[in-house]
Simulated assay, not measured.
Amino acid sequence: AAAAAVPNHPLPDPAVLTDVLNRLADPNLPGAEKITAVQGATPEQLDKFTKAIGDAGFSPLSFTVKDPKWSTETQGDVEAVVTINSPSPKMGGFAVPMSFSPEGEGWKLSKRTSDLLLKTGTSLAGTAT
């Protein structure tokens, strides 16, 4: 039975997951182009998030993804601890557990994580004005 729980795709390289996050945080990409990297988010939410972190001086965000492993909650998803670094001394670096869902040949941020991240990013930035 244990074998059935292992998805039929390999665990993604941390660099692949880092790319997903870099895409999400890229200030030069419109939200409409980012929705492929995020489950269940609208272009408007993504634009708002990017603008909020930019306005707050948090951009450019950089990400370090450590030890991706299979999710215990959602079969086929991958969980990893992601360290988010920002040039802003107000933000500094902090580690957040995130989950990613398989999408075609690639990966995207899971709905659970994107909801949290968009809310946190937008509210973090909102307190900076």
Rank of each mutant, 00 (worst) to 15 (best):
K69F: 00
A56G: 08
D67P: 00
F63A: 10
S71M: 07
E73W: 03
A52I: 02
I53M: 02
S62H: 03
G54I: 01
A41D: 08
T83E: 13
T42P: 04
E79W: 06
G76W: 11
K66P: 00
V82R: 02
D77S: 06
F49P: 02
E44D: 14
E73G: 09
K51P: 02
Q75R: 15
N85E: 05
K48D: 14
V82Q: 05
G54V: 10
T74K: 15
I84W: 00
F49Y: 11
I53D: 01
F49H: 10
F63I: 04
S62L: 01
A41F: 01
T83C: 03
P43E: 10
G40S: 12
L46A: 08
A52N: 08
E44V: 11
D47M: 04
A41M: 01
I84L: 09
A80Y: 00
F58Y: 14
Q75F: 13
L46D: 07
P43M: 09
K66A: 15
Q75V: 09
T50C: 13
S62Q: 12
D67Q: 13
T64G: 09
E44M: 11
N85I: 02
S59T: 09
G40A: 06
V78T: 04
F49M: 13
T64Y: 05
G76C: 11
V81G: 02
E79C: 02
G40W: 07
A41P: 01
P68D: 03
T64L: 13
D67H: 12
T83Q: 11
D47Q: 14
D77I: 03
S71E: 04
A41E: 06
K48P: 01
K69V: 03
A52H: 09
E79V: 06
T64H: 07
K66T: 06
I53E: 05
A41V: 02
A41T: 03
G76Y: 13
P60E: 12
S59K: 03
S59Q: 14
K48L: 15
G57V: 03
D77H: 15
G40N: 06
S62Y: 05
Q39S: 12
S62K: 14
Q75C: 04
V81Q: 07
P68Y: 00
T74V: 13
T42K: 11
D67A: 14
T42M: 00
Q75T: 11
A56V: 05
V65M: 04
D67K: 14
D77T: 10
G76K: 10
V65E: 10
V78K: 05
K51M: 10
E73Q: 14
K66Y: 12
F49W: 13
